[in-house]
Amino acid sequence: MSAARDAILARLRQAIGRTGEEQAKAVETVRARLDNPRPNLVPAHTRLDREGRVALFCEKALAVSAEVERLARLTDAPAAVSAFLRRHDLPQKMVMAPEPMLDLAEWEQQPLLRVRRGTAAPDDAVGLTVAVAGIAETGTLMLASSREQPTLLAFLPETVIALLQAEDIDGAYEDSWQRLREGLGRPPRSVNLVTGPSRTGDVGQKIELGAHGPRRLLVLVVEEAFGEAGDAPR
């Protein structure tokens, strides 16, 4: 309805009431701000070296009821996942992002673990995906939708496992978003910033986990970059 659009914009212009000169300046101000996005004040405690960022990320993620495990290399993931499922009395079965990099983990090491690739279906109990970044500030994962990384994997299953390279852990939200911006230009359809498992305080003001999204969240922080493992197929 462009009549509504015109009416709303006309009323705003009238209320703001710029002169011709001011109008040109305002257009320039807005263009400059949108073309060169710059961070505002970023909290100082997020300015850390790599080990500091990894440590803060783990501390913050644990504080919001995520489970965190640090692994030396990607090929340690299958054993860690299998043990985690056993610990929680869950079947050795999961749906995993069709991300080719995940093949390098050598899932066949765990012959009892059944893995399906794709996005999550309503009856999938466990989903595994890859985070494109971790944000130390609040122990937050950044997931970005793509052909290889469907969004529902992190929301439909009751248990979600996310793999994260230690080198992808940034200090602040702005750092991760800038990397995404440089890598992709336009953001993907969905970017999910995930901080701990799903929760609600809507029943009697008491926090309960697993409201709609996952009840459990396991983050596997992998020290060695994916694909650097010596004998892994590429």
């Binding site: 953001p187 993907p188 969905s190 970017v191 901080t195 305080g201």
Partner: peptide, 24 residues
């Protein structure tokens, strides 16, 4: 709002499902 440092889910959505996406 709740005294949390960050809410559990902050989601940035841009347009509908892209052709190659598996969901959305």
């Amino acid at each position: 709002a709740t005294g949390q440092e960050f809410s559990a889910y902050t989601t940035v959505m841009t347009g509908p499902k892209r052709e190659e996406d598996l969901d959305g």
